[in-house]
Amino acid sequence: MEIYVDGSNLIHKLWHVCENVTQVANGMQRQLSAIEREYKPDFLRVALDAPGGTWRHELVPTYKAQRGKKPEGLQTLLNSAEQLLGDWCTASVAGHEADDIIATWCHRANLSGTQAVIVSADKDLYQLLRKDLHVILRSFRTSVGKVTQEDWFNHDAFATRWAMVPVQWPQYRALVGDKSDNMPGVNSIGERYAMTLMGRYLTIEDCVTAIRRFETTGMPQKQERALLAAWDSGEVQRNIRIHTLVKNVPLPTPEIATT
């Protein structure tokens, strides 16, 4: 089994607990050691966001623009993450987010028949779920390094919760938007209609085709017109691409496992 930790996400989560550079750095080490000790993976890898913009910023300049400047301490931790985690197997690639690196690792694991587990609180990673791939959601609410809640999420749990399959997650996000990434959805289509469409159609394009054929979609005409307008403008296709993780990131080699 291989475990892929979203290191940048973990740094953010720990920072919002205490906002102390030393405590967060120590908390990162404790968390990684605890994960390795508890699950005993063959490999434990940590993905990190690279400094600077990504291909998503090139496609949509306003991507994550609302977040503003990070606190100095948090920025210091993010900039020095690879050095702080020098004893662990880490990877960051210019122009890509940690999510894309994890998606690439998961794709390789799938091709080789390797069981994989993701540790992150980032919902974008839901799209990677398979029967043999789980996401562990960890919450930190008291002291740094102490896990107050841990939820295992797999393909079936996702399907039960969201009434769709994981591969549809980027389609769903394109419809409802993502405020945390400053990405709008389609006007007048909220979670209710988005989930209805994902339950009826595998893709948004299938729904658009049905609308053009005057088939019943489960949406009022107002929402259908809004979806057609967003599709014809290319907005929906762009948003799907933004929310879809890249699975062919050029990772540095050789990659090594650490214990």
Rank of each mutant, 00 (worst) to 15 (best):
W152M: 00
D122W: 13
R212Q: 14
K69M: 08
V5P: 07
L78T: 03
I11P: 13
C89D: 14
G53N: 14
N154H: 13
S8Q: 12
V208N: 11
Y4T: 07
E255P: 03
A25W: 06
E72M: 02
Y63S: 03
T90A: 09
I118F: 13
D42K: 12
D206I: 09
L14Y: 10
V135Q: 15
Q149V: 01
Y63C: 03
P250Y: 13
W55E: 10
G86C: 06
L197N: 04
Y39I: 00
P252Y: 15
V93R: 02
A157G: 02
Q127P: 00
D42G: 07
D232H: 13
L78R: 05
G113F: 06
V176A: 03
E38A: 12
E38S: 06
G185W: 11
R56G: 01
Q221A: 15
W162N: 07
D6I: 03
V249H: 02
V249T: 10
T148S: 01
E97Q: 06
L111H: 08
L245W: 08
I242G: 01
E255C: 11
E36H: 12
S8G: 09
G7H: 02
L129Q: 07
Y172F: 15
L197I: 11
L111T: 07
T258W: 12
R138Q: 14
A157P: 00
D132A: 04
A163I: 06
A194G: 03
E191S: 10
D100K: 10
P250G: 09
I189Y: 10
M219D: 02
G145Y: 14
W231L: 05
C18G: 11
S233H: 05
K131S: 07
A91D: 11
E191W: 10
E97T: 01
W231S: 02
A94Q: 14
S120W: 11
I204E: 03
Q171H: 14
R67L: 07
G27K: 01
C106I: 13
K146S: 01
L32T: 06
L85N: 04
L59G: 06
K146A: 00
H243L: 14
A157T: 11
E205R: 13
W88K: 01
R37Y: 15
G73R: 00
K64C: 04
L137Y: 15
L129I: 07
D122Y: 09
E255H: 14
V186H: 08
N187G: 06
V144G: 08
D181S: 04
I118H: 14
F153P: 00
